Simulated assay, not measured.
Amino acid sequence: MEKKIFSPLREFKPHLLMLLTQVGYTLIYFITEASFNHGMSPYVYVTYRHIVAGVVMFPFAYFLERSVRPKLTFALFGEIFVLSVLGISLSINLYFASLKYTSPTFLASMYNTIASLTFLIAVVLRFEIVDVRNPRGIAKVLGTLISLAGVMTMTLYKGPLMRNLWEPLIHIQPKSASINKSWIKGSLLTVTFCVTISISYIMQASTLKRYPAQLSLTTWMCFMGAIQSAVFTVIAERNNPSAWIIGFNIDLWSILYGGIVVAGFLTYILLWCTEKKGPVFVTVFNPLCTIFVAILAYFVFGEKLYLGSIIGAFIVIMGLYLLLWGKEGDKVVDFKTKDISQCNSDHP
Rank of each mutant, 00 (worst) to 15 (best):
E2D: 15
P8V: 06
K13P: 02
P14W: 01
L17E: 10
Y25D: 04
T26Y: 02
I28N: 11
F30T: 05
S35Y: 06
S35M: 10
Y45C: 02
V46A: 08
A53W: 02
Y62F: 13
L64Y: 09
L64G: 01
R66D: 02
R69L: 02
K71W: 05
G78S: 02
V82S: 01
S84H: 04
V85S: 12
K100V: 13
Y101N: 06
S109W: 02
T113S: 11
T118M: 04
T118C: 05
L125K: 11
L142I: 10
L142Y: 13
L142E: 06
T144F: 04
S147D: 01
L161A: 12
R163G: 06
W166F: 12
K185F: 14
I199V: 14
S206I: 13
K209D: 01
Y211I: 00
L217S: 00
M224V: 15
I227F: 14
A230W: 10
V231M: 08
I235L: 12
N239R: 12
N240T: 12
P241F: 09
I250Y: 09
G264M: 07
L266H: 04
L271F: 13
W272P: 04
C273H: 02
K276M: 10
V282K: 09
F285N: 03
I291Y: 15
I291H: 11
A294T: 14
F299L: 13
G319P: 08
E328F: 13
D339S: 14
S341V: 11
S341H: 13
